[in-house]
Design a protein around this nucleic acid. Structure first.
Lengths: 112, 112
DNA sequence: AGTTTTTATCGTAAAAATACGATAAAAAAA
DNA sequence: TTTTTTTATCGTATTTTTACGATAAAAACT
């Protein structure tokens, strides 16, 4: 496999496909799902209480937060010494929109 | 990191969380999104025409098909020398159900 | 019977993801 | 000012993912 073959391969797909894949990938780990759930549960944007909820080291949680942030699913602001995160509704709406054709089909499948 | 530490970590999350993560992970690659799209497009279950549509080697496509199958998103039947796949609507419905709380929140967020 | 077609699997290499501890950096508290 | 708290990042080890070519196995032609 070439040095950045994967990168070249990814570019062959259209934007929507790549965007959906990226959002889905960000949701593709139980820790990150839990983070989103926790952020939704506590009405206000929370910070490192997430670490206490998850069975993972602080550095690992920080890494997962970064992944969610890079996918646009959450945004974080520095609040003094603490770091506050919240779910980005727009990203979820986008994901919903991208998945809609699949879900619509599932309600009325024409095969199998 | 312990030998199967990751496995132990994954077990600490509840079933719904793990199920959602697994389904999302399966969708977390543009090639697999394309496969689903292609299966939906052609009304009847198709087989290896997928290979022709994707910019990937046959063996790689086969691997992606396996991943989707293992996640329950598609099912495949052998039709003579050919292999026929189709999307499993139940899996998509399940994914939709698991994502609904997130999407509902996004329509009426209470933060940010 | 021999050849072709179709697809899954094996072997393998490179890259990415996952996890942790250690540490740095900045704000807050003492 | 020193210490503590909080969080991001670095370094690193391990595992998983992604990709390919080669090959095997089974059905379908010739």
């Amino acid at each position: 496999m070439n040095l950045n073959h994967k990168h070249l391969v990814q570019e062959q797909f259209d934007t929507d496909t790549r965007e959906l894949a990226e959002l889905a990938k960000a949701l593709g780990h139980p820790a990150r799902i839990m983070i989103l759930r926790e952020l939704l549960l506590r009405r206000v944007c929370v910070c490192g209480e997430i670490v206490e909820v998850l069975p993972l080291a602080q550095s690992t949680v920080s890494q997962h937060l970064k992944a969610l942030k890079e996918a646009g699913l959450i945004s974080g602001t520095v609040e003094g010494v603490k770091s506050c995160y919240c779910v980005n509704p727009e990203a979820l709406k986008r994901l919903s929109k991208l998945l809609k054709p699949l879900f619509d089909w599932a309600e009325n499948p024409n095969c199998c």
